[in-house]
Design a protein around this nucleic acid. Structure first.
Length: 275
DNA sequence: CACGTCACCTGCGTGC
DNA sequence: TGCACGCAGGTGACGT
C-alpha cells in the first residue's frame, strides 16, 4: 500500500496517540510477519517498553522504545514496513482481532496498535540499532541530502532505466510505483530513458518533480486505493497512474500502460518522449 | 553491474 | 452463479 507520503501521513496521525504509552502485551498472529528476533524473544522483550517516539525513514516506521522494566534495559526500535497491503492503526477500547491482523500490541490507556496485512508481505523487526535495517537506503528525497546536483551526478554515473531506478530504494528511498510514474510525467521524462543520457536540465526537472509530487501526496494525506487504506485523497489527482486510456491532463493524449521491470508503468506518449 | 524471473500472499474486478 | 485470469501501492533471492 504505502509509499513515502502514506507512511508519513500515518506517522503524523499515530504520533500523538502512541507516544508516552507503554506496551503491555503483544499478540503475534502470523509468525512470518516478524523478521527479527525470534517470536519468543520478541514477545518477551517488547513487554513493558515505553513508546518514546515514532518517525519515518523511507517507507519504514521506526517506533523508538525504552525499557522501564529492567534498570539497564537497552533502548530498542520497533521497525515496521507495510509492503503492499499493510495497515497500521491505533484503536481505542476493547479490540476484537480481525482475520488479517498479523500483530496486535496492547497498550496502556485501553489502546491497541494493530498491524493488519491481508497479503502478509509486511515485516516487523525489533532491533537495538535501526541502521541495521536502514544502512543501504539511498537519500530521503525531501531532505537536504537530496539535491539536483547529486541527482544529476548519480543518474550519469550509472546506466539504468529511469523507472526501475526510481523504484530502487538504494538509489532514492521512498518512491513507489505511483509516485515514480507521477514524477516522471511531471518531469516530462519517458520511463524507459537511460539514466546516463539525462541532461543536467532534465535532472533538475526530475528533482523538482519528485519533490513536488511527494509534497503534494503528503499535503493530500496520501493516496487511498482499492479496499486497503482510507483517508487520503491524492488518488483523485493522479495524472497518469491508473489512468490508462484516459486523457493526459497536459495535452489530452491517451495515457499508455507498459510493463517495466514487472511493474505497470503509466505515461503520456506525447509529453514523455525520449524513447 | 544491470537485467530478467520467480517467490512471497490475498482479494478484487472482469469476462466468459 | 461459478470460475479462470489478470491485476495490485514492495522487496529480496536467484541466474545470466
Amino acid at each position: 500500500m504505502p509509499e513515502l507520503p502514506e507512511v508519513e501521513t500515518f506517522v503524523r496521525t499515530l504520533r500523538p496517540v502512541l507516544v508516552g504509552k507503554t506496551i503491555l502485551e503483544s499478540d503475534l498472529r502470523w509468525k512470518r510477519t516478524l523478521a527479527a528476533p525470534t517470536p519468543k524473544k520478541f514477545v518477551q522483550e517488547i513487554r513493558g517498553q515505553k513508546i518514546e517516539g515514532i518517525s519515518r525513514r523511507a517507507k519504514f516506521f521506526n517506533v523508538q522504545l525504552s525499557t522501564l522494566r529492567e534498570p539497564q534495559g537497552k533502548p530498542s526500535n520497533l521497525i515496521i514496513h507495510l509492503r503492499m497491503s499493510g495497515d497500521l492503526l491505533a484503536v481505542l477500547g476493547g479490540y476484537q482481532p480481525g482475520t488479517h491482523d498479523r500483530l496486535i500490541l496492547k497498550l496502556t490507556d485501553d489502546t491497541s496498535l494493530v498491524f493488519c496485512d491481508p497479503r502478509k508481505f509486511g515485516r516487523v523487526w525489533l532491533v537495538e540499532d535501526p541502521d541495521e535495517i536502514f544502512r543501504d537506503l539511498g537519500p530521503e528525497p525531501l531532505s537536504d541530502a537530496f539535491t539536483a546536483d547529486w541527482l544529476y551526478a548519480s543518474l550519469r554515473s550509472r546506466k539504468r532505466l529511469l523507472k526501475p531506478l526510481l523504484l530502487d530504494q538504494k538509489f532514492i528511498a521512498g518512491l513507489g510505483n505511483i509516485y515514480a510514474d507521477e514524477s516522471l510525467h511531471l518531469a516530462k521524462l519517458h520511463p524507459l530513458t537511460t539514466s546516463d543520457q539525462v541532461t543536467k536540465k532534465q535532472a533538475e526537472h526530475l528533482w523538482s518533480a519528485i519533490r513536488e509530487t511527494l509534497e503534494e501526496g503528503i499535503r493530500r494525506n496520501g493516496a487511498s486505493i482499492d479496499w486497503v487504506y482510507r483517508g487520503g485523497e491524492f488518488q483523485n489527482h493522479f495524472r497518469v497512474y491508473g489512468r490508462t486510456g484516459e486523457a493526459c491532463p497536459t495535452c489530452g493524449t491517451k495515457i499508455r500502460r507498459i510493463v517495466v521491470g514487472q511493474r505497470g508503468t503509466h505515461f503520456c506518449p506525447r509529453c514523455q518522449k525520449g524513447k
